[in-house]
Design a protein around this nucleic acid. Structure first.
Length: 167
DNA sequence: TCCAATATTATGC
DNA sequence: GCATAATATTGGA
């Protein structure tokens, strides 16, 4: 890369009934989505003008997040920038997006779908590194036997999301 | 290159 | 149910 940083990440808040999420956009699309942190902590949202592209992405992201929180699949998603993870992680995230709302799969199932049936633990690590919870439905991945595994940002989110989806 | 950690799973008690 | 071993992938020293 050149020494010039012409495209710094842009952070925008998403206000929902459950709190304010923070969406981070790169030059390629939505790069990260954070759960509401401390109450009142909106974080450093980007100052200055927001590029038209990002503004359009943020509109799609906002609607998608609100839809998922309501237990409905997002009708349209902004371009996702998943170039930060390893090849294995990107493979896992791509597999997660194929899970339909209301359906659940186990870490072992995801691992098997990737051709590594014994990589269940690695799949869990990949999910933990998922920068886009909700949009990449890591909350629909359970441990064997239908037990809840873990979840970044708190298990209560995972439980709530599964409940509204009827899973 | 080696070591330790992990959002798992299977087995044994 | 709880404890233990095994397995794949990652990140840091």
């Amino acid at each position: 890369m050149q020494s010039q940083q012409s495209a710094p990440p842009i952070r925008l808040p998403i206000a929902t009934g459950a709190g304010t999420f923070i969406a981070t956009y790169s030059a390629s699309g939505l790069a990260e989505l954070d759960f509401p942190a401390a109450p009142g902590t909106v974080g450093q949202t980007s100052a200055g003008p927001v590029p038209p592209e990002v503004f359009a992405w943020h509109d799609l992201t906002t609607r998608a997040v609100l839809a998922v929180l309501s237990g409905k699949p997002p009708a349209l998603l902004p371009p996702l920038d998943l170039t930060q993870g390893t090849a294995f992680q990107q493979d896992v995230w791509r597999e997660l997006q194929s899970i339909v709302a209301g359906q659940t799969r186990s870490y072992g199932q995801i691992a098997a779908a990737l051709g590594r049936p014994k990589a269940c633990r690695a799949v869990g690590s990949a999910c933990a590194a998922n920068p886009l919870p909700l949009l990449v439905p890591c909350h629909r991945v359970l441990a064997a036997g239908g037990r809840l595994g873990g979840f970044s940002g708190g298990l209560h989110w995972k439980r709530h999301l599964l409940q509204v989806e009827g899973a």
